[in-house]
Amino acid sequence: MSVQALGKPVRISKESRFSHFWSQRGEWVEEPNCRRGGESGVQRLYSAEGAMLYSKRQTGHIYRSWLYPFGRPTVLREFDAIEALRQVGVGVPEVVFCGAERDANREWQALLVTKALDGFEDLNQWYAKGGRERHGELAHELLLQEIGATLARMHLARWQHSCLYGKHIFVRISGEGAQARVDVALLDLEKARRRWTAYGAAQHDMKQLRRHSSFESADWQKLVYFYQAVFGSTIKGLE
């Protein structure tokens, strides 16, 4: 299978990129877990220029669909989602390298290497560390607005995250009050998929986020308001 690559973090030939990144080792930030017939985990690496990278390493970790009845590495599906969401203005990690090859036993080995989201933290951590109190209520409202707009843009493109928890929504705020700058990015997109309708994607993800988040009722209503303003219609069952 041909190797897909974005950018040139190190000076190596195109044919050697997979081998180069596969040989890299770093600290495990997500220990390998066994599922989907193989293993998948995430290591922290550093580029030759000192940039922090995250490398998702997989062996035999595949999904099957009508397009790929014999299986395809899940990082390739994640790469597809990242690139599609980037094109519709949704914040996602920058891909340094993505590729997959079969080993001597014909088992898939696959990699997805992305740059760290500098200055970002997941939404759960942001609340737990006092981000709301530190930045103030005006900035918090801007945060809810940007989260709502980000999710709406994803769903309008008929993409469903499929695992939308607070820990997968990363935020960065600079400045205070109404002048604050808010950035939002989505992570862990290996289960993302296209739906036949934007409404179907919206219903699944937004209900899932509500079940697995600790938003206060008033904050959730604001988030839904901002979301629906961009989405353009009401989503039943979100109240």
Rank of each mutant, 00 (worst) to 15 (best):
I82H: 06
L143C: 06
I147C: 12
E141V: 08
V96Q: 11
L117D: 00
V29T: 09
G41Y: 01
D188E: 05
Y127C: 09
Q208I: 00
E133V: 02
Q228C: 01
S233C: 03
L142K: 15
V95T: 10
A48W: 04
A48P: 10
E27G: 06
V113Q: 11
V171Y: 05
R44N: 03
E137M: 11
D122F: 02
M1I: 02
G237I: 01
G177M: 06
S19M: 08
L209S: 09
A51F: 05
L117K: 11
E101T: 00
C98Q: 07
Q4V: 12
V88Y: 02
R25T: 13
D219S: 11
E94H: 11
W28P: 02
L112N: 01
L142Q: 15
S23M: 08
R134N: 09
S23D: 13
P32W: 00
N105K: 15
V10T: 12
G148H: 03
G119C: 02
E39T: 11
H61C: 09
M1F: 02
E176M: 12
H20K: 06
V95P: 07
T74R: 15
R57M: 05
E15T: 13
D122P: 08
L138K: 15
D80T: 07
C34D: 11
G41E: 06
I62M: 12
I82K: 12
T59H: 14
V182I: 15
S47T: 07
G148N: 09
V75C: 14
R102V: 02
K207T: 07
R106F: 04
A198M: 07
V75D: 06
Q145P: 06
A192N: 08
L156E: 14
E94L: 10
E216R: 14
A139F: 01
F97D: 00
Y68F: 15
A100M: 04
A149G: 09
R17P: 05
A178F: 03
V10F: 09
D183W: 10
R64T: 13
E94W: 04
A218I: 05
D205V: 03
S55V: 00
L6F: 09
Y68V: 02
R172W: 05
E27T: 12
R36S: 14
Q125V: 05
Y46Q: 13
G60Q: 03
A104Q: 15
V95W: 04
S174K: 15
T114V: 12
Q145D: 13
K56H: 01
R106S: 13
N33W: 04
V92N: 10
R11K: 13
R193T: 04
A100F: 00
V3P: 00
V171P: 10
G41C: 04
S174Y: 04
I62T: 12
A48I: 05
W108S: 02
R44P: 04
A201H: 07
I173R: 14
A218Q: 14
Q203H: 13
E146M: 09
